[in-house]
Design a protein around this nucleic acid. Structure first.
Lengths: 134, 134
DNA sequence: TAATATAGGACTACTGTAGTCGTATTTATG
DNA sequence: CATAAATACGACTACAGTAGTCCTATATTA
């Protein structure tokens, strides 16, 4: 429980890889998947999501691939997670899906107190950039 | 993803409940389950785990039930989680189950950087006690 | 036109979680 | 001492989310 998904891990790994090479260099999903022994199709989808959000830029066709879309120090870990998972890492389901998602929302006594921890966690992911995992 | 389990939520809710009442007061799993609309059998198991670890004390038989085993300010949230889930909240599976649990452990480049965030999260849960969610 | 790359939807398999059920044991009390 | 009410606990089921696969379409270079 309480773990980042494999998709997020794969995303972080390849973004870091790109960040370590000269700016603008292009990588194919295939070579990245080989390098890190990541299932190709899965990584491809991750890269497509990162591309849609501009974290990487994609080029189709022969000689295509992906390159970083921003400077490593501008790529925030919490953005990466949100792009890949469509949500921040949340301690409780009700933080994500609201009152209707929890049968005891009204009488829950721990939602507010846990928000303190939630905020702190948010700030950890907000502060870390790809630059810092190079 | 990245959420505390319902069991942990239920555990926190009832421990807080107990902490708000006079020291030594005894509560049955049934009344706690009713009060917070928690499935009785599930809550019972949570309480049994908390009892085994001494966070609560249990008394069998008629007029039995559970009472807090320690002062609210001595009951640490991270201990509650560990007792109920048998592990801390971990960002990555390999932090829990070691190298053999991850096919790319050796070539993973993000394990160490993420440990910084992991440590910060640990400390958040280590610092919060039941006293603070009353 | 062929080869190579991204784009993306549909599908399967697996795992973990939430919740249920059944039964044994303990203990207060009439 | 019998009964009722409580904890103790293992086995089981149902469901949801994740990881991973497959297939086809589209773009681009040579």
């Amino acid at each position: 429980m309480f773990q980042l998904s494999k998709k997020v891990e794969y995303g972080l790994i390849v973004l870091r890889h790109m960040a370590m090479k000269p700016r603008g260099q292009v990588f194919t999903a295939k070579e990245l998947a080989n390098e890190y022994e990541i299932p190709y199709e899965l990584l491809a989808k991750v890269l497509q999501k990162l591309a849609k959000s501009g974290i990487v830029v994609s080029m189709q066709g022969v000689k295509g691939g992906y390159a970083l879309g921003q400077k490593p120090e501008a790529i925030i870990v919490s953005d990466i997670i949100r792009v890949i998972e469509k949500e921040r890492p949340m301690l409780a389901g009700c933080y994500v899906d609201g009152p209707l998602s929890c049968s005891i929302f009204d009488i829950c006594t721990i939602r507010k107190p846990l928000e303190k921890i939630q905020k702190n966690i948010n700030s950890l992911f907000d502060k870390m950039t790809i630059q810092e995992i190079v």
